[in-house]
């Protein structure tokens, strides 16, 4: 499968500090890819590299099949991006900012500007300078600027940081609209997991510079339906049993195994005991994205 974006063992070092460590992500066309990670996990560094602001220390990436070691600059014309803060000239109006961007991307005329302003809900800002906009308005103008070249791939780094609830809803609806109506592939990084869970079709979990899990939202939803957490002394025997019975599981650490799906607890324990598999503890849990993420990074640390 050809991905919109694929990274291969991407590494970024600042002197002795490894910010990205063999990072591999795969973004399919049409996806809204939620890049999840705590502050300092490497999300922004990864985005900076993809956007050409920084060079990887090792590894490579491809955008629409074009490798970063070849003519990647040209393919970036298919990208629109907001990296950390939107690129806006504060002294200019929303319209003037878009005129500037239209010239930068080489649009033949300014016909689409009114539609773009309408799309992001900034039609009525008139002569108001962008520096006097609210954070949400700036963020929406940033998205309009990123959309000026009709990109196929939109990169949004922490687009809802600092926004009020109304602003968050507006950005969320805009992202969904762009993905559904304009078929734009979107990479969105955030640590607002609840918000991401409302829009993302795929997730990549980044921890300590490495992608520890990539999962589609469908698969994640299945796993999030129900979960049994087993504390065991002999995980190998349990794993063998789960493999034989096609049970979705995940070894979290040397004594903890998670089972995903809905099970009748007493029947399940009974089945296990028939095979002499006795768990020290069994907890039933309904998982949220937040729980899933916390378990994932906890698990990865104990691997």
């Amino acid at each position: 499968m050809e991905y919109v974006l694929e990274t291969n063992n991407l590494e970024k070092k600042y002197k002795d500090l490894k910010v990205l460590n063999h990072t591999n992500i795969h973004i399919e066309a049409g996806a809204i890819y939620g890049l999840i990670g705590k502050n300092g996990a490497g999300k922004t560094t990864l985005i900076r590299i993809i956007c050409g602001l920084q060079k990887p220390t090792n590894g490579s990436y491809t955008i629409y099949g074009v490798n970063n070691n070849s003519n990647i600059t040209n393919i970036r014309k298919r990208i629109g991006a907001i990296i950390e803060t939107p690129s806006i000239y504060g002294e200019m109006t929303a319209r003037d900012n878009l005129i500037e961007q239209y010239q930068l991307v080489g649009m033949p005329n300014f016909d689409g500007i009114d539609d773009l302003l309408k799309l992001v809900g900034l039609s009525n800002t008139g002569n108001k300078k962008a520096k006097n906009f609210s954070l949400g308005m700036k963020q929406r103008l940033g998205i309009a600027i990123a959309l000026a070249g009709s990109p196929d791939f939109l990169i949004l780094d922490e687009p809802i940081n600092g926004l009020d609830p109304q602003g968050i809803i507006e950005i969320r609806e805009l992202i969904l609209k762009l993905n559904k109506e304009k078929r734009i592939t979107i990479l969105i990084s955030s640590h607002y997991l609840d918000e991401l869970s409302k829009i993302a079709t795929h997730y990549g979990f980044l921890d300590n510079g490495s992608i520890i899990k990539e999962i589609s939202s469908k698969e994640l939803m299945k796993r999030m339906e129900h979960k049994l957490i087993l504390k065991v002394n002999n995980p190998k025997e349990f794993v063998k049993y789960f493999e034989e019975h096609n049970i979705t599981y995940e070894v979290m650490d040397s004594k903890t195994i998670n089972i995903y799906g809905k099970y009748n607890l007493s029947k399940f324990i009974n089945e296990l005991s028939k095979k002499n598999l006795i768990a020290d503890e069994i907890h039933e849990q309904e998982e949220s994205l937040e729980n899933y993420y916390m378990n994932l990074i906890g698990g990865s640390k104990n691997d």
Binding site: C51, G52, L53, T73, N74, I75, R76, K77, I79, G80, A81, I83, E84, T85, P86, S87, I88, Y89, G90, E91, Q101, L104, V105, I145, G149, I155
Partner: peptide, 18 residues
């Protein structure tokens, strides 16, 4: 100086200018 403080250089590079 505004090119850096307002993120314009970032924008120019990310949309494919050399």
């Amino acid at each position: 100086g505004i090119e850096y403080s307002d993120g314009a250089i970032r924008n120019k590079i990310s949309i494919g200018h050399k």
